[in-house]
Amino acid sequence: MLVIKNLHANIDGKEILKGLSLTINKGEIHAIMGPNGSGKSTLSSVITGHPAFEVTHGTIEFNGTDLLELAPEERANEGIFLSFQYPVEIPGVSMVNFMRSAINEQRKYRNEPAISATDFLRLMREKKELVEMDSKLTNRAVNEGFSGGEKKKNEIFQMAMLEPKLAILDETDSGLDIDALRIVANGVNKLKSPENATVVITHYQRLLDYITPDFVHVLYDGKIVKSGGKELALELEARGYDWIKQEVEA
């Protein structure tokens, strides 16, 4: 589904990704772990097309399409979703309006007619239940006045609404208490299917107690330096990252 080869990317002239390669197939859950500053969030930004980053080398293909040729909104409409580490507030724009625009853009991209009001409201209700989202939140402006946990929950709610093929969760666990973490993880698990894939970017193994990865990758200094099964996450939790750094530098 997603094939990244020898990816190099800069921000403000500074190279952050230095030859990263990764292949993700449908039905898989990949966890990407690594110390601060290793390039985890940069990877999600580059896949989704954040304009602050410049790709200098390498390729990203998504279901055979050259992703780097597409604008950010086209990548989204191809089915790539990013759950932001820091979701922004958009004052005055109601969640209902925002979601309806997003859904209709996606449908337009697929040459489908706009969603009817009743279907849309039904969809909203269904997905709100899935992520145990309070109606009070969906009646407000996008993320305005939401707590940290509510913002993260709102990201998963949007993911449920848009049903992406590839979901990237960027540090979705940070700032969540244990109940919110459980709700968010349940949402992600319920949305899992053999047809879609998930990338979980995280510092801690904690989230992986709830979302079981098929593969765990360690990102260090802009490259994936070690890959393994879910036991790798446990080992990282127990031993920290220093032994990885030593292995790389040896």
């Binding site: 989704t48 979703f81 724009v93 625009s101 853009e105 996606q106 991209y109 402006a141 949007q158």
Partner: peptide, 18 residues
């Protein structure tokens, strides 16, 4: 907004109207 599939022009319209 882009990441949710909304083009920049529509995003500006949405934000300004908000």
């Amino acid at each position: 907004c882009n990441q949710r599939g909304i083009s920049t022009e529509d995003a500006v319209g949405l934000i300004v109207n908000g």
